[in-house]
Simulated scan of single mutants.
Amino acid sequence: MNQPKLVHFSDKDLDGESCFLLSRLAFPSREMDLRGVTPYTVNQEVQRFLEEELSREMDVVITDVSVNEEVAALIQKKVKQGHSLRLIDHHPTALPLAASYDWANVIIEDSGKKTSATSLYYAYLVNQGLLAPSGVLSDYVELVRSFDTWDWDASGNIRANQLNLLFYMVERNVFVQDVISRLREDGPDQDQFVFNEVESVLIYTEEKRMDEFEQKKLKQMKHVEVEIDLAKTRTFQVGVVFLEQYHSTTGNFLCKNDEQIDFVAMLDPGKGRISFRTIKDDVDLAVIAQHYGGGGHPKASGCSFTGVTMKAFVYPALQVHTSQR
């Protein structure tokens, strides 16, 4: 009997793409449709799929992104009609879905550790008997989790950061095929995910380039006061910089090296997005991003360019830049 086609939506970063890797490993002979989305496109993409493409010969999985209430209500309707849909996420802004719908599995922390979509999906597949755990696979999943939650910075597990660097350096299909081939290996000497010689050279070169890049962005960053009306109005000291890549590592570097700012706002005009990062415990970026129509984690979140966010972050940064010339 043929298995239903797997339609898998996931984010396009390392955590989201690693969920695709797990699907490939768990279902090597199954027909599947892997669709990369972002937090900014997922609602439109999933809604269109549900309305125009969904059939009973499909299993649908959504990982590392959540949906708004309108799309959630549509998913619930399809589930009641007998369709198979499941959402697995780890972002705090997705918790209301888990409280309202059985098909939504949202876990922020497990056994004292922050979770990632990859770690949650891995646990789900293993618990369902769909994927056999192995040493090298568990190590890879932990590297992804450690980077995505930024635990690697505290633990000193630099391999997690190096994996993310490699992910963005290598052509995506090459990365996927190389990683899958290693994750399928199992044996007494295969309990750790190891970079090969070529990858190690690439990573070393990129780390050196990153050092110069981060120093350059530190000099370019502008200080802007932003008043945000949350539970109570608060004025934040925000470091604003134009940045199209390496938001996690560079954002963390900027926060560590400028104690005056509460958080950094990294502007990506090409994608129309703003990424937020902080290292301060009294700043909840999940709440701030949600205020601007976005979402994410307490220390890492984002939103889109809108009239409101342009006025709050972009225009003041440009004015500061002009006044300092």
Rank of each mutant, 00 (worst) to 15 (best):
residue 96 P to G: 08
residue 7 V to W: 02
residue 276 F to D: 04
residue 276 F to N: 07
residue 118 T to E: 10
residue 293 G to A: 01
residue 203 I to W: 01
residue 93 T to Q: 00
residue 310 M to E: 09
residue 274 I to E: 01
residue 309 T to D: 00
residue 283 V to H: 02
residue 55 S to E: 01
residue 233 T to F: 14
residue 276 F to H: 09
residue 42 V to P: 03
residue 220 Q to R: 10
residue 133 P to C: 08
residue 90 H to T: 05
residue 190 Q to H: 06
residue 279 I to Y: 04
residue 167 F to E: 09
residue 92 P to G: 02
residue 48 R to L: 14
residue 131 L to Y: 05
residue 202 L to K: 00
residue 301 S to V: 01
residue 176 V to W: 01
residue 236 F to R: 13
residue 54 L to Y: 01
residue 186 D to N: 08
residue 319 Q to M: 14
residue 242 F to C: 01
residue 97 L to T: 04
residue 126 V to N: 05
residue 12 K to E: 10
residue 170 V to E: 07
residue 316 P to S: 05
residue 238 V to Y: 10
residue 250 T to S: 11
residue 275 S to A: 12
residue 65 V to G: 03
residue 255 C to P: 10
residue 177 Q to D: 10
residue 274 I to N: 03
residue 301 S to P: 07
residue 189 D to G: 02
residue 240 V to W: 11
residue 43 N to E: 12
residue 290 Q to T: 15
residue 93 T to F: 07
residue 184 R to A: 05
residue 175 F to E: 04
residue 196 N to L: 10
residue 146 S to V: 12
residue 309 T to M: 01
residue 288 I to R: 01
residue 295 G to F: 05
residue 251 G to R: 05
residue 38 T to Y: 13
residue 201 V to N: 03
residue 256 K to R: 15
residue 300 A to V: 13
residue 6 L to G: 02
residue 234 R to Q: 14
residue 165 L to E: 06
residue 76 Q to M: 10
residue 183 L to V: 06
residue 36 G to N: 09
residue 95 L to E: 07
residue 135 G to F: 09
residue 22 L to Y: 04
residue 9 F to Q: 01
residue 144 V to G: 01
residue 167 F to R: 13
residue 106 V to F: 10
residue 254 L to D: 02
residue 218 L to R: 14
residue 88 I to Y: 04
residue 218 L to A: 14
residue 273 R to K: 15
residue 188 P to H: 00
residue 75 I to S: 03
residue 52 E to A: 13
residue 272 G to N: 13
residue 170 V to G: 03
residue 117 A to L: 11
residue 88 I to L: 07
residue 157 N to K: 11
residue 20 F to A: 08
residue 2 N to S: 12
residue 313 F to N: 02
residue 178 D to L: 03
residue 320 V to T: 08
residue 121 Y to V: 03
residue 106 V to T: 05
residue 184 R to Y: 02
residue 320 V to Y: 04
residue 274 I to Q: 05
residue 176 V to G: 00
residue 142 E to W: 01
residue 107 I to Y: 08
residue 34 L to M: 06
residue 298 P to V: 09
residue 63 T to H: 00
residue 149 T to D: 11
residue 8 H to D: 00
residue 86 R to K: 13
residue 325 R to G: 12
